[in-house]
Design a protein around this nucleic acid. Structure first.
Length: 722
DNA sequence: TAAAGTGAGGTTTTT
DNA sequence: CCTCACTTTA
């Protein structure tokens, strides 16, 4: 058989990784070194050469995006569509396993998934039920605490030796919360993995079945695995299975969420005879960019040791720009992108990456002003939107009236006169009767006043009607009916301004999302209805790619969400002490090292050009703050970087001045003289009165006819000589 | 009960 | 500065 297509475009080490015969292999793969390629080609190798059935493999990744990409690439290299292949995210795959073995897992058949927001609501309810004060027992912190316990595989919270009262109470809340989840038939994300691990431990036969079935497990981004994920993998591989893990300790940026890059070493110790390979050739970035990134990451202690190299050309220097403030920074970025466009390149090759989501606003503003299309990744995803979650809650309640989480969510949305007081009574009744809220409310309606009884009656009729059509109709028709009958569109539409309109749009979008739904990675004998699968998928995959993807647009995202992606031009904005590295990470060397890895991730996204920008003054929460440039900028040797600044000629002596940029940047500055009449796109016309500063401080004072005198940053204000 | 007004607090994020 | 949760008021 001709298998050359599997190996031909691999370098020797990649080839070795793919064809390795030993049962356990670890591939340490640097940024842009062909990590995904190794996994996909190894799958092809195993299937075509080793003749393993694709369904006997398990391929695990962390994000839906990565999983989708992985599946697509495997299918294209194998030349067949494999809907049932076990290729997906940890949560997706093990949820599938739980759905198939709900009984062994001790779950109800119709169990549903709680996302972070749902979980938060349940915790709030539990705190209230325990008569604790929300101000002291912050739900968010409690949620974090509970998830941490579960991620570590604990049913009972492990408390520090001298645990505080708060911590002890949180442990109690954890138990109570879990009880509530069991009663309501819901499981949170962490529970999916923990429950699966327990199920396999308790059922040796089942474990044995899966150990036999999965002959080879392949894991991407292994440095991001947490305790429970590691335990699950180890359990499934067993003694006979094989495992290939691919990871990069330098890109471990999720330790704050329980990820342990130490799992890499643990893997070597736990499994005997692990073959370790290092992929160090980078195929993405120019030499200068890579050298700069290497120089930064080199400052981290305790690295496994790996140094990327490339055969690519030297390329341009890494550009550093010092802006006056965040507005100037945004303007600079937009101007560079415009000149990139003038070179005939496309917007989708440009990415603006930042440390925190709060930074996106001001950048967005500038881009909007320049009338350029853009797309922001992250933030609130489609299925996490309030209005969408409300609609989905109706659907969940239609399928299962005992879903208290859904009931709580929409009993008064749109408002129907069931306020906090009535709800308290219903909750109380539910507790006494030991029934679901829905049933309690039905009984409550009989004993309450006519007004409440009536609105409850209308509500029950609505749910019953939806429940019927959930059985009869296709999901698209079901959601149409749902929206027609719930008044959700009207309710959300009356929110002021743009917000209301976009909520209605999203609700309408939900219908097309339902129409386009088809399930992947389910077993043929799955008895669940389309609607059930749709709702599960909505919880597991928050709908990142609901928005139009094909449009040529500037890409904006946080450093975290940029991992795994690459762009021709990359801007890392906000490279200031306190913001990046973040002030809450500068004390602890471990956290600082993670910030540095974050910087490494950001820099290595760039293929051709890399800009690192920072602002001398940044307005944070309405207050101007002054921060020095990020220490990471200083860690880049001078030979690889170039600081963009404007030099001025004749600045002090002559009346005419014309600052120019030294060196190879495309940032244009026009020449003006005092007394020139100029036009500005938003301020109108005016006369130049004064100028001050040199270097990047060159500014002009203009007396506008309408707006009065203003100081403008010469290089960024769009001034035209008239 | 619902809408308008006041005050704390505000990394990173996937599932 | 902006968002959210909570309080006051009609």
């Amino acid at each position: 058989m001709d298998i050359s297509y599997i190996l031909d475009d691999l370098n020797p080490i990649q080839r070795e990784a793919v064809t390795e015969e030993l049962p356990y292999s670890l591939v340490l793969a640097g940024a842009g070194s062909g990590k995904t390629k190794v996994i996909t080609h190894k799958v092809a190798w195993l299937c075509k050469v080793k003749e393993i059935n694709p369904l006997s493999l398990m391929t695990v990744t962390f994000t839906n995006k990565a999983a989708k990409e992985m599946r697509g690439r495997i299918e294209s290299i194998l030349g067949e569509q494999l809907n049932q292949m076990w290729c997906g995210t940890f949560h997706g795959l093990f949820h599938r396993m739980l759905k198939m073995h709900w009984e062994e897992a001790g779950l109800v058949k119709s169990f549903t998934i709680l996302d972070g927001d749902d979980q938060n609501r349940v915790i709030k309810r539990v705190i209230k039920k325990m008569n604790l004060d929300e101000a002291t027992w912050q739900p968010r912190q409690t949620q974090w605490f509970i998830n941490k316990q579960k991620d570590e595989g604990r049913r009972i919270a492990k408390l520090p030796n001298k645990a505080t009262y708060v911590e002890e109470k949180m442990a109690d809340i954890y138990l109570e919360y879990q009880k509530t989840c069991e009663e309501e038939g819901v499981i949170d994300f962490a529970e999916i993995l923990l429950r699966c691990h327990e199920m396999l431990t308790k059922n040796p036969n089942l474990l044995n079945h899966y150990q036999k079935r999965f002959q080879h497990i392949l894991v991407d981004e292994f440095q991001d695995t947490n305790e429970i994920q590691y335990l699950l993998l180890k359990q499934l591989v067993g003694n006979e299975g094989q495992m290939t893990v691919v990871g990069d300790d330098d890109q471990s940026i999720y330790s704050w969420r329980g990820a342990k890059s130490s799992n890499i070493n643990r893997f070597i110790n736990d499994f005997k005879g692990v073959k370790t390979l290092k992929l160090e050739q980078n195929y993405r970035s120019t030499t200068n960019i890579l050298s700069a990134a290497n120089a930064v990451i080199r400052n981290n202690p305790e690295r496994l040791g790996k140094e990327l190299w490339t055969e690519k050309e030297e390329g341009e220097l890494v550009k550093i720009y010092r802006a006056f403030n965040e507005r100037d920074e945004a303007k600079f970025i937009v101007d560079i992108i415009k000149s990139w466009m003038d070179e005939g390149r496309s917007l989708s090759e440009c990415a603006i990456i930042y440390r925190s989501n709060a930074q996106s606003r001001i950048l967005e503003d500038s881009i909007l002003r320049a009338e350029l299309p853009y797309r922001i990744y992250g933030g609130v995803r489609f299925y996490e939107r309030l209005e969408i979650k409300n609609a989905l809650a109706y659907a969940k309640l239609a399928l299962d009236q005992n879903n208290d989480t859904a009931f709580e969510r929409i009993i008064n949305v749109p408002t129907r006169g069931i306020g906090a007081k009535t709800m308290d009574q219903i909750r109380e009744a539910a507790r006494e009767e030991n029934s679901s809220l829905y049933v309690a409310a039905q009984n409550f309606a009989n004993s309450s006043g006519p007004k409440i009884a009536n609105s409850l009656k209308i509500f029950f009729e609505l749910v019953e009607k939806l429940s019927e059509s959930a059985e009869k109709k296709e999901i698209e028709g079901f959601f149409e009916e749902l929206l027609d009958n719930t008044d959700l569109k009207k309710f959300h539409g009356k929110e002021p301004g743009e917000k209301g309109r976009s909520r209605v749009e999203n609700l309408e979008e939900l219908i097309s999302a339902a129409a386009g739904f088809f399930s992947i990675g389910e077993d043929a004998d799955d008895e669940r209805s389309q609607l059930e699968m749709f709702l599960d998928q909505a919880s597991l995959d928050a709908g990142e790619n609901q928005a139009k993807e094909n449009e040529d647009a500037i890409q904006m995202m946080t450093l975290h969400s940029s991992k795994g992606l690459e762009y021709s031009v990359v801007f890392v904005a906000g490279c200031e002490e306190g913001l990046f590295p973040h002030k809450r990470s500068t004390e602890d060397p471990k956290q600082l090292a993670e910030e540095r890895r974050l910087c490494y991730v950001g820099m290595t996204r760039a293929m051709e050009r890399l800009y690192l920008t920072y602002a001398e003054v940044r307005n944070v929460y309405g207050v101007d703050g002054f921060s020095p440039a990020s220490r990471f900028l200083k860690e880049i040797p001078d030979e690889f970087k170039y600081e963009i600044r404007m030099a001025s000629e004749n600045i002090s002596k002559s009346k005419s001045f014309s600052p120019k940029i030294v060196g190879g940047t495309d940032h244009k500055v026009g020449g003006f003289a005092l007394g020139d009449r100029v036009g500005h796109p938003s301020f109108g016309e005016g006369v130049i009165l004064n100028y001050e500063g040199d270097g990047s401080n060159a500014r002009v004072q203009v007396n506008f006819d309408q707006e009065g005198t203003k100081w403008l940053v010469l290089s960024f204000a769009k001034l035209n000589k008239i």
